[in-house]
Design a protein around this nucleic acid. Structure first.
Lengths: 258, 258
DNA sequence: GTCTATACCCCGATAGAC
DNA sequence: GTCTATCGGGGTATAGAC
Protein backbone atom coordinates (compact mmCIF):
# COMPACT_ATOMS: atom_id res chain seq x y z
CA UNK A 1 0.00 0.00 0.00
CA UNK A 2 2.69 2.44 0.84
CA UNK A 3 4.41 1.05 -2.22
CA UNK A 4 1.50 1.85 -4.42
CA UNK A 5 1.22 5.20 -2.82
CA UNK A 6 4.93 5.75 -3.33
CA UNK A 7 4.74 4.74 -6.94
CA UNK A 8 1.86 7.07 -7.51
CA UNK A 9 3.67 9.84 -5.84
CA UNK A 10 6.67 9.17 -7.99
CA UNK A 11 4.66 9.19 -11.15
CA UNK A 12 3.02 12.36 -10.05
CA UNK A 13 6.20 14.23 -9.38
CA UNK A 14 7.67 12.95 -12.62
CA UNK A 15 4.78 14.29 -14.61
CA UNK A 16 4.85 17.51 -12.66
CA UNK A 17 8.48 17.89 -13.57
CA UNK A 18 7.78 17.15 -17.22
CA UNK A 19 5.07 19.79 -17.26
CA UNK A 20 7.36 22.38 -15.80
CA UNK A 21 10.10 21.51 -18.24
CA UNK A 22 7.81 21.89 -21.20
CA UNK A 23 6.45 25.10 -19.71
CA UNK A 24 9.98 26.46 -19.47
CA UNK A 25 10.52 25.58 -23.09
CA UNK A 26 7.44 27.57 -24.00
CA UNK A 27 8.56 30.40 -21.80
CA UNK A 28 11.66 30.59 -23.93
CA UNK A 29 9.63 30.48 -27.09
CA UNK A 30 6.96 33.01 -26.36
CA UNK A 31 7.36 34.63 -23.00
CA UNK A 32 5.32 34.37 -19.87
CA UNK A 33 2.29 36.04 -21.32
CA UNK A 34 1.58 33.36 -23.82
CA UNK A 35 2.39 30.38 -21.69
CA UNK A 36 -0.70 28.24 -22.00
CA UNK A 37 -1.78 25.05 -20.37
CA UNK A 38 -3.24 23.85 -23.62
CA UNK A 39 -0.08 23.99 -25.63
CA UNK A 40 1.92 22.47 -22.80
CA UNK A 41 -0.55 19.61 -22.74
CA UNK A 42 -0.48 19.32 -26.52
CA UNK A 43 3.28 19.05 -26.57
CA UNK A 44 3.21 16.43 -23.85
CA UNK A 45 0.66 14.33 -25.68
CA UNK A 46 -1.92 14.96 -23.02
CA UNK A 47 -5.22 16.65 -23.17
CA UNK A 48 -5.50 20.06 -21.59
CA UNK A 49 -7.94 19.08 -18.88
CA UNK A 50 -5.51 16.48 -17.57
CA UNK A 51 -3.10 19.19 -16.53
CA UNK A 52 -5.56 20.57 -14.08
CA UNK A 53 -4.85 17.55 -11.90
CA UNK A 54 -1.33 18.89 -11.48
CA UNK A 55 -1.81 22.62 -11.55
CA UNK A 56 -5.19 24.00 -10.67
CA UNK A 57 -4.72 26.98 -12.95
CA UNK A 58 -2.35 28.65 -15.30
CA UNK A 59 -1.25 31.04 -12.58
CA UNK A 60 -0.29 28.19 -10.31
CA UNK A 61 1.96 26.81 -13.00
CA UNK A 62 3.45 30.26 -13.40
CA UNK A 63 4.02 30.48 -9.67
CA UNK A 64 5.84 27.16 -9.70
CA UNK A 65 8.10 28.36 -12.48
CA UNK A 66 8.81 31.60 -10.65
CA UNK A 67 9.71 29.81 -7.44
CA UNK A 68 11.95 27.41 -9.35
CA UNK A 69 13.71 30.30 -11.02
CA UNK A 70 14.28 32.18 -7.78
CA UNK A 71 15.56 29.00 -6.23
CA UNK A 72 17.90 28.32 -9.12
CA UNK A 73 19.48 31.73 -9.10
CA UNK A 74 19.56 31.71 -5.32
CA UNK A 75 21.33 28.37 -5.29
CA UNK A 76 23.86 29.63 -7.83
CA UNK A 77 24.55 32.64 -5.64
CA UNK A 78 24.90 30.53 -2.53
CA UNK A 79 27.27 28.12 -4.21
CA UNK A 80 29.44 30.98 -5.40
CA UNK A 81 29.51 32.47 -1.94
CA UNK A 82 30.50 29.17 -0.40
CA UNK A 83 33.36 28.57 -2.79
CA UNK A 84 36.48 30.61 -2.39
CA UNK A 85 37.28 32.51 -5.53
CA UNK A 86 40.50 33.86 -4.08
CA UNK A 87 41.96 30.39 -4.19
CA UNK A 88 43.38 29.95 -7.69
CA UNK A 89 43.02 26.20 -7.37
CA UNK A 90 39.31 26.49 -6.80
CA UNK A 91 37.54 25.84 -10.07
CA UNK A 92 34.14 26.35 -8.54
CA UNK A 93 31.79 29.14 -8.16
CA UNK A 94 31.64 32.21 -10.26
CA UNK A 95 31.81 30.67 -13.67
CA UNK A 96 29.89 27.54 -12.94
CA UNK A 97 26.24 26.91 -12.62
CA UNK A 98 26.44 25.05 -9.39
CA UNK A 99 30.01 24.54 -8.51
CA UNK A 100 31.32 22.19 -5.89
CA UNK A 101 32.46 23.71 -2.70
CA UNK A 102 36.01 23.71 -1.53
CA UNK A 103 37.78 24.43 1.74
CA UNK A 104 38.77 27.99 2.42
CA UNK A 105 42.48 28.72 2.30
CA UNK A 106 41.87 32.30 3.35
CA UNK A 107 42.93 35.29 1.36
CA UNK A 108 44.36 38.20 3.24
CA UNK A 109 42.35 41.29 2.72
CA UNK A 110 39.98 41.41 -0.20
CA UNK A 111 38.44 38.06 0.36
CA UNK A 112 34.95 39.38 0.85
CA UNK A 113 35.28 41.51 -2.26
CA UNK A 114 36.25 38.41 -4.20
CA UNK A 115 33.24 36.58 -2.82
CA UNK A 116 31.03 39.52 -3.71
CA UNK A 117 32.26 39.54 -7.27
CA UNK A 118 31.95 35.77 -7.49
CA UNK A 119 28.35 35.88 -6.34
CA UNK A 120 27.48 38.68 -8.71
CA UNK A 121 29.16 36.88 -11.59
CA UNK A 122 27.33 33.68 -10.77
CA UNK A 123 24.00 35.47 -10.83
CA UNK A 124 24.90 37.07 -14.12
CA UNK A 125 26.00 33.74 -15.57
CA UNK A 126 22.73 32.15 -14.58
CA UNK A 127 20.80 35.04 -16.10
CA UNK A 128 22.68 34.88 -19.37
CA UNK A 129 22.17 31.14 -19.53
CA UNK A 130 18.47 31.36 -18.68
CA UNK A 131 17.30 34.68 -20.08
CA UNK A 132 13.62 33.83 -20.14
CA UNK A 133 13.49 32.58 -16.61
CA UNK A 134 15.44 35.66 -15.62
CA UNK A 135 12.89 37.83 -17.40
CA UNK A 136 10.16 36.00 -15.56
CA UNK A 137 11.48 37.03 -12.16
CA UNK A 138 13.34 40.27 -12.80
CA UNK A 139 11.62 41.69 -15.85
CA UNK A 140 8.37 43.53 -16.10
CA UNK A 141 5.72 42.04 -13.88
CA UNK A 142 3.41 39.62 -15.66
CA UNK A 143 0.18 41.52 -16.23
CA UNK A 144 -2.77 40.22 -14.32
CA UNK A 145 -0.61 38.04 -12.17
CA UNK A 146 0.18 38.79 -8.57
CA UNK A 147 2.80 36.68 -6.90
CA UNK A 148 1.60 34.77 -3.86
CA UNK A 149 3.50 34.82 -0.58
CA UNK A 150 5.23 31.54 -1.42
CA UNK A 151 7.59 33.42 -3.69
CA UNK A 152 9.03 35.87 -1.19
CA UNK A 153 11.29 33.40 0.54
CA UNK A 154 12.96 32.14 -2.63
CA UNK A 155 13.04 35.68 -3.99
CA UNK A 156 15.12 36.82 -1.05
CA UNK A 157 17.92 34.28 -1.39
CA UNK A 158 20.29 36.31 -3.55
CA UNK A 159 19.85 39.33 -1.35
CA UNK A 160 20.55 37.21 1.70
CA UNK A 161 23.82 36.06 0.21
CA UNK A 162 24.95 39.63 -0.41
CA UNK A 163 23.91 40.62 3.09
CA UNK A 164 25.87 37.69 4.46
CA UNK A 165 29.01 38.82 2.72
CA UNK A 166 28.63 42.30 4.10
CA UNK A 167 28.02 40.83 7.52
CA UNK A 168 31.17 38.72 7.33
CA UNK A 169 33.18 41.69 6.21
CA UNK A 170 31.78 43.81 8.97
CA UNK A 171 32.57 41.20 11.58
CA UNK A 172 36.15 40.64 10.51
CA UNK A 173 37.22 44.02 9.24
CA UNK A 174 34.49 46.45 10.16
CA UNK A 175 32.57 48.30 7.51
CA UNK A 176 32.21 52.01 7.59
CA UNK A 177 30.82 54.57 5.23
CA UNK A 178 30.67 58.34 5.44
CA UNK A 179 27.64 59.64 7.29
CA UNK A 180 24.43 59.91 5.33
CA UNK A 181 22.73 63.20 4.58
CA UNK A 182 19.91 63.96 6.97
CA UNK A 183 16.89 63.03 4.84
CA UNK A 184 18.23 59.56 4.30
CA UNK A 185 19.01 58.64 7.86
CA UNK A 186 15.53 57.49 8.79
CA UNK A 187 15.19 55.44 5.65
CA UNK A 188 18.57 53.80 6.20
CA UNK A 189 17.77 52.98 9.79
CA UNK A 190 14.55 51.31 8.78
CA UNK A 191 16.28 49.35 6.03
CA UNK A 192 18.93 48.17 8.46
CA UNK A 193 16.29 47.01 10.89
CA UNK A 194 14.60 45.09 8.14
CA UNK A 195 17.52 43.28 6.63
CA UNK A 196 20.54 43.39 8.90
CA UNK A 197 20.28 45.10 12.28
CA UNK A 198 23.91 44.40 13.00
CA UNK A 199 25.15 46.49 10.10
CA UNK A 200 25.56 50.25 10.17
CA UNK A 201 22.49 51.84 8.57
CA UNK A 202 24.55 53.48 5.86
CA UNK A 203 25.93 50.09 4.86
CA UNK A 204 22.51 48.49 4.83
CA UNK A 205 21.14 51.24 2.61
CA UNK A 206 24.13 51.00 0.31
CA UNK A 207 23.60 47.25 0.11
CA UNK A 208 20.07 47.69 -1.14
CA UNK A 209 21.22 50.18 -3.73
CA UNK A 210 24.09 47.95 -4.79
CA UNK A 211 21.74 45.02 -5.15
CA UNK A 212 19.53 46.97 -7.52
CA UNK A 213 22.52 48.24 -9.47
CA UNK A 214 23.91 44.76 -10.03
CA UNK A 215 20.61 43.62 -11.43
CA UNK A 216 20.44 46.74 -13.55
CA UNK A 217 23.63 45.71 -15.28
CA UNK A 218 22.40 42.18 -15.75
CA UNK A 219 19.04 43.28 -17.07
CA UNK A 220 20.60 45.65 -19.58
CA UNK A 221 22.75 42.85 -20.89
CA UNK A 222 20.08 40.16 -20.90
CA UNK A 223 17.39 42.41 -22.33
CA UNK A 224 19.64 43.74 -25.04
CA UNK A 225 19.74 47.38 -24.01
CA UNK A 226 23.47 47.55 -24.49
CA UNK A 227 22.85 46.80 -28.12
CA UNK A 228 26.39 45.86 -29.15
CA UNK A 229 27.93 48.59 -27.00
CA UNK A 230 29.40 46.09 -24.59
CA UNK A 231 31.18 43.20 -26.20
CA UNK A 232 32.58 41.12 -23.37
CA UNK A 233 29.75 41.20 -20.88
CA UNK A 234 31.50 39.14 -18.26
CA UNK A 235 34.63 41.23 -18.04
CA UNK A 236 32.66 44.43 -18.04
CA UNK A 237 30.31 43.11 -15.41
CA UNK A 238 32.95 41.77 -13.05
CA UNK A 239 34.78 45.06 -13.08
CA UNK A 240 31.65 47.02 -12.37
CA UNK A 241 30.56 44.60 -9.67
CA UNK A 242 33.89 45.22 -7.98
CA UNK A 243 33.32 48.94 -8.04
CA UNK A 244 29.86 48.47 -6.64
CA UNK A 245 31.34 46.40 -3.82
CA UNK A 246 33.34 49.45 -2.85
CA UNK A 247 30.10 51.39 -2.59
CA UNK A 248 29.01 49.26 0.33
CA UNK A 249 32.36 49.66 2.02
CA UNK A 250 34.02 46.43 0.93
CA UNK A 251 37.68 47.09 0.35
CA UNK A 252 39.71 45.06 -2.08
CA UNK A 253 43.46 45.01 -2.28
CA UNK A 254 44.36 48.42 -3.73
CA UNK A 255 46.21 46.77 -6.57
CA UNK A 256 43.13 45.07 -7.85
CA UNK A 257 40.86 48.02 -7.44
CA UNK A 258 39.75 49.38 -10.79
CA UNK B 1 -8.66 71.31 -52.04
CA UNK B 2 -5.72 71.80 -49.81
CA UNK B 3 -8.30 72.59 -47.18
CA UNK B 4 -10.02 69.31 -47.63
CA UNK B 5 -6.71 67.60 -47.64
CA UNK B 6 -5.75 69.47 -44.50
CA UNK B 7 -8.96 68.55 -42.79
CA UNK B 8 -8.49 64.96 -43.71
CA UNK B 9 -5.00 65.04 -42.41
CA UNK B 10 -6.21 66.57 -39.20
CA UNK B 11 -8.87 63.96 -38.75
CA UNK B 12 -6.37 61.29 -39.45
CA UNK B 13 -3.85 62.43 -36.90
CA UNK B 14 -6.63 62.93 -34.38
CA UNK B 15 -7.79 59.40 -34.79
CA UNK B 16 -4.26 58.13 -34.73
CA UNK B 17 -3.76 59.90 -31.45
CA UNK B 18 -6.97 58.49 -30.05
CA UNK B 19 -5.89 55.01 -31.01
CA UNK B 20 -2.56 55.42 -29.31
CA UNK B 21 -4.19 56.82 -26.20
CA UNK B 22 -6.55 53.90 -25.93
CA UNK B 23 -3.69 51.52 -26.61
CA UNK B 24 -1.74 53.07 -23.76
CA UNK B 25 -4.73 52.58 -21.52
CA UNK B 26 -4.80 48.93 -22.44
CA UNK B 27 -1.09 48.70 -21.93
CA UNK B 28 -1.70 49.78 -18.39
CA UNK B 29 -4.48 47.27 -17.98
CA UNK B 30 -2.92 44.18 -19.42
CA UNK B 31 0.62 44.71 -20.54
CA UNK B 32 2.15 44.76 -23.97
CA UNK B 33 1.55 41.09 -24.64
CA UNK B 34 -2.18 41.40 -24.61
CA UNK B 35 -2.49 44.66 -26.36
CA UNK B 36 -4.88 43.91 -29.20
CA UNK B 37 -6.13 45.90 -32.12
CA UNK B 38 -9.54 44.39 -31.69
CA UNK B 39 -10.13 45.60 -28.17
CA UNK B 40 -8.71 49.01 -28.97
CA UNK B 41 -11.18 49.25 -31.80
CA UNK B 42 -13.99 47.99 -29.60
CA UNK B 43 -13.32 50.61 -26.99
CA UNK B 44 -13.20 53.32 -29.62
CA UNK B 45 -16.50 52.28 -31.12
CA UNK B 46 -14.83 51.24 -34.31
CA UNK B 47 -14.59 47.95 -35.99
CA UNK B 48 -11.27 46.19 -35.90
CA UNK B 49 -10.66 46.30 -39.61
CA UNK B 50 -10.90 50.08 -39.59
CA UNK B 51 -7.75 50.31 -37.49
CA UNK B 52 -5.71 48.76 -40.24
CA UNK B 53 -6.05 52.04 -42.12
CA UNK B 54 -3.99 53.64 -39.37
CA UNK B 55 -1.65 50.88 -38.33
CA UNK B 56 -0.93 48.10 -40.78
CA UNK B 57 -0.40 45.59 -38.01
CA UNK B 58 -0.36 45.14 -34.29
CA UNK B 59 3.41 45.39 -34.24
CA UNK B 60 3.32 48.75 -35.95
CA UNK B 61 1.07 50.06 -33.23
CA UNK B 62 3.46 48.66 -30.66
CA UNK B 63 6.37 50.32 -32.40
CA UNK B 64 4.57 53.66 -32.33
CA UNK B 65 3.99 53.30 -28.61
CA UNK B 66 7.59 52.38 -28.01
CA UNK B 67 8.88 55.35 -29.95
CA UNK B 68 6.49 57.66 -28.11
CA UNK B 69 7.69 56.31 -24.79
CA UNK B 70 11.36 56.69 -25.63
CA UNK B 71 10.66 60.19 -26.86
CA UNK B 72 8.75 61.08 -23.71
CA UNK B 73 11.43 59.92 -21.33
CA UNK B 74 14.09 61.42 -23.57
CA UNK B 75 12.34 64.76 -23.58
CA UNK B 76 12.04 64.68 -19.79
CA UNK B 77 15.75 64.02 -19.51
CA UNK B 78 16.62 66.78 -21.93
CA UNK B 79 14.42 69.27 -20.15
CA UNK B 80 16.05 68.42 -16.84
CA UNK B 81 19.49 68.80 -18.33
CA UNK B 82 18.61 72.15 -19.84
CA UNK B 83 17.24 73.59 -16.64
CA UNK B 84 19.72 74.57 -14.01
CA UNK B 85 19.00 72.76 -10.80
CA UNK B 86 21.60 74.75 -8.96
CA UNK B 87 19.51 77.86 -9.51
CA UNK B 88 16.82 77.84 -6.83
CA UNK B 89 14.60 80.08 -8.91
CA UNK B 90 14.43 77.62 -11.75
CA UNK B 91 11.19 75.74 -11.34
CA UNK B 92 11.68 73.59 -14.37
CA UNK B 93 12.73 70.11 -15.00
CA UNK B 94 13.69 67.52 -12.55
CA UNK B 95 11.06 67.72 -9.88
CA UNK B 96 8.19 68.94 -11.92
CA UNK B 97 6.50 65.61 -12.44
CA UNK B 98 5.63 65.41 -8.81
CA UNK B 99 7.26 65.60 -5.48
CA UNK B 100 8.65 68.41 -3.49
CA UNK B 101 11.07 70.73 -5.13
CA UNK B 102 14.23 70.89 -3.21
CA UNK B 103 16.67 73.04 -5.08
CA UNK B 104 20.14 71.63 -5.20
CA UNK B 105 22.51 73.81 -3.24
CA UNK B 106 24.34 76.21 -5.46
CA UNK B 107 27.78 74.97 -6.26
CA UNK B 108 30.04 76.34 -8.90
CA UNK B 109 31.93 73.13 -8.80
CA UNK B 110 29.30 70.43 -8.58
CA UNK B 111 27.08 71.89 -11.24
CA UNK B 112 27.40 68.93 -13.55
CA UNK B 113 26.70 66.61 -10.65
CA UNK B 114 23.54 68.55 -9.97
CA UNK B 115 22.54 68.27 -13.60
CA UNK B 116 23.30 64.55 -13.53
CA UNK B 117 21.10 64.04 -10.50
CA UNK B 118 18.38 66.20 -12.00
CA UNK B 119 18.35 64.17 -15.19
CA UNK B 120 18.32 60.89 -13.34
CA UNK B 121 15.53 62.08 -11.09
CA UNK B 122 13.52 63.25 -14.07
CA UNK B 123 13.84 59.86 -15.71
CA UNK B 124 12.80 58.17 -12.50
CA UNK B 125 9.86 60.52 -12.08
CA UNK B 126 8.68 59.75 -15.58
CA UNK B 127 9.03 56.04 -14.97
CA UNK B 128 7.11 56.15 -11.72
CA UNK B 129 4.39 58.19 -13.37
CA UNK B 130 4.20 55.91 -16.43
CA UNK B 131 5.13 52.46 -15.18
CA UNK B 132 3.59 50.56 -18.05
CA UNK B 133 5.22 52.60 -20.72
CA UNK B 134 8.44 52.26 -18.80
CA UNK B 135 8.00 48.50 -18.73
CA UNK B 136 7.40 48.57 -22.44
CA UNK B 137 10.80 50.05 -23.17
CA UNK B 138 12.95 48.93 -20.26
CA UNK B 139 11.30 45.72 -19.14
CA UNK B 140 11.52 42.26 -20.57
CA UNK B 141 11.44 42.28 -24.34
CA UNK B 142 8.02 41.68 -25.82
CA UNK B 143 8.02 38.09 -27.06
CA UNK B 144 7.80 37.73 -30.78
CA UNK B 145 8.43 41.39 -31.35
CA UNK B 146 11.67 42.77 -32.67
CA UNK B 147 12.11 46.50 -32.63
CA UNK B 148 12.70 48.10 -36.00
CA UNK B 149 15.51 50.56 -36.61
CA UNK B 150 13.18 53.51 -36.10
CA UNK B 151 13.41 53.01 -32.38
CA UNK B 152 17.14 53.30 -31.93
CA UNK B 153 17.28 57.06 -32.31
CA UNK B 154 14.64 57.78 -29.68
CA UNK B 155 16.05 55.03 -27.49
CA UNK B 156 19.40 56.77 -27.35
CA UNK B 157 18.18 60.13 -26.13
CA UNK B 158 18.59 59.60 -22.41
CA UNK B 159 22.03 58.16 -22.90
CA UNK B 160 22.95 61.13 -25.04
CA UNK B 161 21.96 63.50 -22.27
CA UNK B 162 24.16 61.70 -19.77
CA UNK B 163 27.03 61.67 -22.21
CA UNK B 164 26.54 65.38 -22.77
CA UNK B 165 26.86 66.08 -19.08
CA UNK B 166 30.04 64.08 -18.87
CA UNK B 167 31.34 65.90 -21.90
CA UNK B 168 30.58 69.29 -20.36
CA UNK B 169 32.28 68.28 -17.16
CA UNK B 170 35.27 67.02 -19.02
CA UNK B 171 35.59 70.21 -21.01
CA UNK B 172 35.36 72.54 -18.04
CA UNK B 173 36.98 70.56 -15.28
CA UNK B 174 38.55 67.53 -16.86
CA UNK B 175 37.41 64.08 -15.92
CA UNK B 176 39.84 61.46 -14.83
CA UNK B 177 39.52 57.99 -13.43
CA UNK B 178 42.13 55.52 -12.26
CA UNK B 179 43.54 53.36 -15.04
CA UNK B 180 41.55 50.32 -16.03
CA UNK B 181 42.77 46.78 -15.56
CA UNK B 182 44.23 45.32 -18.69
CA UNK B 183 41.37 43.12 -19.89
CA UNK B 184 39.01 46.06 -19.91
CA UNK B 185 41.11 48.51 -21.84
CA UNK B 186 40.13 47.30 -25.27
CA UNK B 187 36.48 47.24 -24.41
CA UNK B 188 36.62 50.73 -22.97
CA UNK B 189 38.43 52.08 -26.00
CA UNK B 190 35.78 50.66 -28.27
CA UNK B 191 32.99 52.05 -26.14
CA UNK B 192 34.58 55.48 -26.16
CA UNK B 193 34.86 55.39 -29.93
CA UNK B 194 31.21 54.48 -30.19
CA UNK B 195 29.68 57.03 -27.89
CA UNK B 196 32.13 59.79 -27.07
CA UNK B 197 35.57 59.79 -28.65
CA UNK B 198 36.52 62.94 -26.79
CA UNK B 199 36.17 61.31 -23.39
CA UNK B 200 38.82 59.16 -21.73
CA UNK B 201 37.98 55.51 -22.35
CA UNK B 202 37.67 54.78 -18.65
CA UNK B 203 35.07 57.52 -18.34
CA UNK B 204 33.13 56.29 -21.33
CA UNK B 205 33.04 52.76 -19.94
CA UNK B 206 32.02 54.04 -16.52
CA UNK B 207 29.26 56.04 -18.19
CA UNK B 208 27.78 52.96 -19.76
CA UNK B 209 27.89 51.13 -16.46
CA UNK B 210 26.38 54.09 -14.64
CA UNK B 211 23.61 54.28 -17.18
CA UNK B 212 22.67 50.67 -16.55
CA UNK B 213 22.92 51.11 -12.80
CA UNK B 214 20.55 54.07 -12.79
CA UNK B 215 17.97 52.11 -14.69
CA UNK B 216 18.50 49.18 -12.38
CA UNK B 217 17.40 51.31 -9.47
CA UNK B 218 14.42 52.61 -11.37
CA UNK B 219 13.37 49.17 -12.53
CA UNK B 220 13.57 47.73 -9.04
CA UNK B 221 11.34 50.48 -7.79
CA UNK B 222 8.87 50.45 -10.66
CA UNK B 223 8.68 46.68 -10.86
CA UNK B 224 8.21 46.29 -7.15
CA UNK B 225 11.37 44.38 -6.34
CA UNK B 226 12.08 46.56 -3.35
CA UNK B 227 8.87 45.28 -1.89
CA UNK B 228 8.43 47.85 0.88
CA UNK B 229 12.12 47.92 1.69
CA UNK B 230 12.52 51.40 0.34
CA UNK B 231 9.92 53.86 1.48
CA UNK B 232 10.89 57.19 0.00
CA UNK B 233 12.00 56.20 -3.47
CA UNK B 234 12.90 59.70 -4.56
CA UNK B 235 15.25 60.49 -1.70
CA UNK B 236 16.87 57.09 -1.90
CA UNK B 237 17.26 57.38 -5.65
CA UNK B 238 18.70 60.89 -5.69
CA UNK B 239 21.31 59.95 -3.17
CA UNK B 240 22.32 56.87 -5.07
CA UNK B 241 22.35 58.73 -8.37
CA UNK B 242 24.79 61.16 -6.82
CA UNK B 243 27.07 58.34 -5.78
CA UNK B 244 26.87 56.89 -9.26
CA UNK B 245 27.87 60.27 -10.66
CA UNK B 246 31.07 59.97 -8.70
CA UNK B 247 31.72 56.66 -10.43
CA UNK B 248 32.08 58.41 -13.76
CA UNK B 249 34.39 60.99 -12.26
CA UNK B 250 31.91 63.79 -11.64
CA UNK B 251 32.87 65.56 -8.45
CA UNK B 252 30.33 67.28 -6.25
CA UNK B 253 31.09 69.55 -3.40
CA UNK B 254 32.70 67.38 -0.75
CA UNK B 255 30.18 68.54 1.80
CA UNK B 256 27.22 67.18 -0.12
CA UNK B 257 28.89 63.98 -1.08
CA UNK B 258 27.29 61.97 1.67
C1' DG C 1 -6.27 10.30 -13.54
C1' DT C 2 -7.34 10.54 -18.26
C1' DC C 3 -10.53 11.03 -21.84
C1' DT C 4 -14.32 13.59 -24.94
C1' DA C 5 -17.11 17.24 -25.40
C1' DT C 6 -18.48 21.63 -24.66
C1' DA C 7 -19.46 26.53 -23.12
C1' DC C 8 -17.72 30.70 -23.88
C1' DC C 9 -14.34 33.67 -24.58
C1' DC C 10 -10.18 35.86 -27.28
C1' DC C 11 -7.11 37.19 -31.40
C1' DG C 12 -4.91 39.01 -36.36
C1' DA C 13 -5.90 39.62 -40.76
C1' DT C 14 -8.41 39.96 -45.18
C1' DA C 15 -12.34 40.38 -48.82
C1' DG C 16 -15.56 43.02 -50.74
C1' DA C 17 -19.85 46.00 -50.41
C1' DC C 18 -20.84 50.73 -49.66
C1' DG D 1 -12.46 54.97 -44.77
C1' DT D 2 -15.78 52.30 -42.65
C1' DC D 3 -18.66 48.53 -42.62
C1' DT D 4 -20.10 43.20 -42.42
C1' DA D 5 -18.61 38.79 -42.74
C1' DT D 6 -15.39 35.43 -42.54
C1' DC D 7 -11.15 32.45 -42.27
C1' DG D 8 -8.45 30.14 -39.15
C1' DG D 9 -6.41 30.19 -35.38
C1' DG D 10 -5.89 30.71 -30.09
C1' DG D 11 -7.26 30.37 -24.99
C1' DT D 12 -9.38 28.88 -19.70
C1' DA D 13 -12.03 26.06 -17.51
C1' DT D 14 -15.64 22.56 -16.37
C1' DA D 15 -18.82 18.31 -16.75
C1' DG D 16 -19.20 13.74 -16.92
C1' DA D 17 -17.99 9.04 -18.91
C1' DC D 18 -14.60 5.62 -18.25
Amino acid sequence: MTTVHGARQRARTEITTAIKEEARRQLAAGGAAKLSLRSVARELGMVSSALYRYFPSRDDLLTALIIDAFDAVGAAAEAAAASDPSDPSDPAGPLREGGPRRPEPTAPHGRQVARWVAVAAAVRAWAVAHPHEYALIYGSPVPGYTAPMDTVGPAARVGMVLIGIARDAHRTEGLALPPLPEPLKGEARRIAEDIAPELPPAVAAALVAAWAQLFGLISFEVFGQFNRLVEDGEVFFRHTARRIAAEVGLRGEPAARS
